[in-house]
Amino acid sequence: MADLTVRAAPPGPDKAAVGPQPTGALRRRKRTWHVHLLLVATCFVLCAPVLYALLAATQNNAQLFSFQLTPGESLARNFEVVWESRSLGRYMWNSTVVAVAITVGKTITALLAGLAFVYFRFPGKWFVFGFVLITLMMPTEISILALFRIVSGLGWNDSTLGLTVPFLASATGAFLFRQHFANLPAELSEAAQLDGANPLQFLVRILIPLSWNTIGALAVIQFVYGWNQFIWPLLLISDQREQLVQVGLGSLTQAGQGQAYGPLMLGAVLASIPPLVVFLALQRRFMNGFALTRDK
């Protein structure tokens, strides 16, 4: 357990008879109270930037400059600027397409790779494994300029293909599933083979239903990754109508004078909603499948 002091035995019905117990219980409750206070304060500090963004999103510049701490009435106007004249909606749609494509594609390629690594023996497996393993040390960003030249050479500038295809597979996903499958009992595949199932049937009927936590964890990571892409669309996309949201938000910033803060904050808030929704919807699976059940 994580608590650094060992918890006292849970208060049973016989505890009251012992005598000095109430003091201990009182002290324990008092300490818990402090922990709650600290936790609430920490949560508040961590949430403060976004709370302030929510506030500023409803204000006009005059209210913002006077540090008004109550909501203003400019939400509708700010929304009009963000959604209509700066077409954030279009950017968000583009990002949704790209993030969903990357999430679905990567999950499928990773499931297939995990299946091949765990349930097959073939000559040179160790070599293929090493070949994939090494890419964990090669972040895309290292060779992003060369990647840009290659993808441009394919004629994929300003296209969804250029934004998705290079990210449809990764060592991370393959290894996540490999580790998960390797921890499942071998009897599963033996039984499936006795029943005459082929590998794909085994994957769809047996493995996937047992892997929802891992799939959910990977989906959160990949959706957030796809949605938060910044450097790559910055390089690849020059046609503003095809731009993704993280770069598109730049249209709400103005150098020097005349920065409208309300729309900028509203844009930041709106652009954070989809990844947050995915995270919150899948958070139990995310924590179960990815981090909190890491063995060792």
């Binding site: 390629t109 297939l112 293929v128 994939v132 890419t135 090669m138 290659i150 290079p166 597979a169 060592a171």
Partner: peptide, 15 residues
Amino acid sequence: FLAPTLAVLVLFLYW
């Protein structure tokens, strides 16, 4: 089964 992963890694990471 490994082909999609290997193809993407070769084309968009190794190359």
